[in-house]
Design a protein around this nucleic acid. Structure first.
Lengths: 182, 182
DNA sequence: CACATCATGTAACCAGTTACATGATTGG
DNA sequence: CCAATCATGTAACTGGTTACATGATGTG
């Protein structure tokens, strides 16, 4: 079970609805996990059935009502247990890397174009994450924030996401350049 | 279909047996894709049935015989087609990132230990990949190699893997330090 | 009233993981 | 003869993706 713990983690210091989680786990936004809305609603139902979450209908004016989910004690315990359990490293699994490996079978210019396009996307995502991180800091220096903030988890994970996207962009540009130069 | 193209790419400039592919796609080794042997043998059977590969028994002395697979023309075409097809970006999907996000629910020291352990693993993997890359260079400078080598694909993909592991190690140490300092 | 956004789901399918199995050959 | 490595598979299960569906509410 994988999404499971990502959902529990997301609900750690705020309650969220399925729709809000969808936005959090959306591609382009998520720094620490990705999931589509369909998967989330299924998972939320399971988590509620297992007693790890409780859902509460929230009546809204101006928009449809929503069900907001909160961690139960059991849910929090399960999350804590998960953080202690050993996990194996996972490697990158990205079609673009396979394409790069298969460069010899590809049209060099078209592959370079794809790499450049991805570089742009990754750059944009990195910038978005950087903004989010700046918001978390709220004016403080990073060192200060890491010492004093209540929950530094989102900052730690967000930083990894930012690094990943930046580096992806750097590599894409480098590889595209290498292909174009031939 | 995912592993499919990774296998075709791996067979692009040399023929390999299921066992050799297993080692290539093994965790700890793979820079561009991961797969377990069970999955590989199934995939190889499918690829052969689909006419993208052909297998040939190779009689060996001193060890069990093996079946070596080679790309067919159709297989090569399929790989080329794949390199041209658009693909979406994929984000990191790593339990360790979820654990970091859930830092507030975790034992800080134990989480730091896990991060440090992962840093060590990633460092080792990065060094292994660096050796592989040096072998590919074969004494040439990178610039020279990228200009003149027949197939730079493995070098491009391997470099991404190396970068990823190095950065993972850096982040793990940084995050562990942040957790320990509290 | 059409379109965007908010909001929540079901069902079929596909890819990957885990568990289980087997056998050859060499070296200590 | 036992352990390590080489070599190849099957089957059940889990997690994730894709396709399909529906309805509320506000804005132009």
């Amino acid at each position: 079970m994988a999404l499971r713990h990502a959902v529990l983690a997301a609900l750690l210091d705020r309650d969220l609805s399925g729709y809000q989680l969808t936005k959090l786990f959306d591609l382009g936004v998520s720094s620490f996990w990705h999931a589509a809305s369909q998967q989330l609603y299924v998972e939320l139902a399971k988590l509620e059935a297992d007693g790890l979450l409780t859902g509460h209908e929230v009546v809204q004016q101006g928009r449809p009502n929503k069900r907001v989910f909160a961690l139960t004690d059991t849910g929090l315990q399960e999350l804590t247990r998960f953080t202690l359990a050993p996990t194996k490293p996972t490697s990158i699994r990205d079609d673009l890397l396979v394409k790069a490996y298969a460069a010899h079978a590809a049209d060099r210019v078209k592959l370079a174009e794809q790499l450049e396009q991805r570089a742009t996307q990754s750059q944009a995502k990195a910038e978005y994450l950087e903004e989010q991180l700046a918001k978390l800091l709220g004016g403080k220096s990073e060192a200060e924030y890491l010492r004093t903030a209540e929950n530094i988890g989102p900052y730690l994970a967000g930083t990894r996401g930012k690094m990943y996207e930046r580096e992806q962009a750097t590599w894409c540009m480098w590889a595209a350049e290498a292909l174009r130069a031939r």
